[in-house]
Design a protein around this nucleic acid. Structure first.
Lengths: 139, 139
DNA sequence: TATTGTTATACTCTATAACTATA
DNA sequence: TATAGTTATAGAGTATAACAATA
C-alpha cells in the first residue's frame, strides 16, 4: 500500500485519538463530546448560553442539546433561564461537574500523551503550530 | 479561551477535513467512507476479501458491510463468492466504480488542498512526517 | 421579524454479540 | 472448532428543517 496521503493520515490519527478518549472516558460515564463541553464550561469560569457554548465547541446548537441533556441528567450541569434574556438558557457547571471535569482532564491528558508518545517535546510543538495554522485560516 | 491543546486541535482540524469531504463527495452520491473503500480497491488493483478490505480501512468487518451494501446498490462494486474459499466474499470494483473513484479522488484532493492551503509544501511534508510517526507507533 | 432553543428526523461512523455457512 | 460475513442492536457525532417562546 505504502503511500498514505496527508488527509488520510489526519483521519487515521484522529480516529486513534477518539478511540483513546472513548476508552478512558467511558468508565467515567462521559463521552468525548460531553467532556469537551465540561472543559469549555470550566475554562469559561461562568455559565454560558447554549448558542455560545455550541460556538465554542464548533457544533450547531441542535447538536449540543443531547450533550447537555446527558450532562444534566448526571447532575454535572444545570440549565437556568437567563434572567437577562428569557429566551436564553444558561448552562451552569455544578460542583460535581467541576470535579468530573478534573477527572476527565486527567484521562484526556493521558490519552493525548499516549498518542503523541513517540514525538519529542519539540516535535509536539511543531505539530501544534502546523495544526494551529491550518485551523486558524478558517476562523 | 486561547490555549487549545494539541489533541483538541487534531480533533478540530480533522472535523474540518470530514466537513470538506462530505460537501464535495455528497453531490457524487458518496460518503467519505465509501470513497475510502473505493480508493483501497482501486489501489489494490484486484478484488479484495471483506476482511482484508476492512483491515486496510482499519474498521471491523461489520462496519464495512453497509459501506459495501451502498456501493453495490450504486453499481460501483460487485460481491462475488471467492472460488478459492466459499466462506469469503470478494469485493470487485466495476468500471463504473473505477470511474467514480477517479472523480472522488479529485474531490478529495481539492478538499485536502483547501484544508492545507496555508501550509507551504515543506510544512505539509513536515506535518505528514509527524503524523506518520504517530500513526506508525500503533501498527 | 429575528433570535434561542427544542422537537423531529436522518445519516455517518463505529462497535460488540450472536448467528449462519463453510472449512 | 475456527473463520468469514451478516443480522441485530447500539451509541456517538453530526446536520437540516420546522416550530414555540421570547424579544
Amino acid at each position: 500500500m505504502g503511500d498514505v496521503e496527508l488527509p488520510e493520515l489526519l483521519h487515521l490519527v484522529s480516529k486513534r485519538l477518539r478511540h483513546g478518549y472513548v476508552h478512558r472516558l467511558g468508565p467515567l460515564g462521559l463521552t468525548p463530546g460531553q467532556a469537551r463541553a465540561l472543559r469549555v464550561l470550566a475554562d469559561a469560569e461562568q455559565p454560558l448560553r447554549m448558542v455560545r457554548l455550541a460556538e465554542e465547541l464548533r457544533i450547531v446548537p441542535r447538536s449540543l442539546t443531547p450533550v447537555i441533556d446527558a450532562l444534566e441528567e448526571s447532575g454535572l450541569v444545570r440549565r437556568e433561564v437567563d434572567p437577562a434574556n428569557r429566551r436564553s438558557t444558561l448552562v451552569v457547571l455544578t460542583s460535581e461537574g467541576r470535579a468530573a471535569h478534573e477527572t476527565a482532564l486527567d484521562a484526556r491528558r493521558q490519552a493525548g500523551q499516549e498518542l503523541f508518545a513517540v514525538l519529542s517535546d519539540e516535535q509536539r510543538e511543531q505539530l501544534k503550530e502546523l495544526l494551529s495554522a491550518v485551523d486558524a485560516q478558517f476562523r
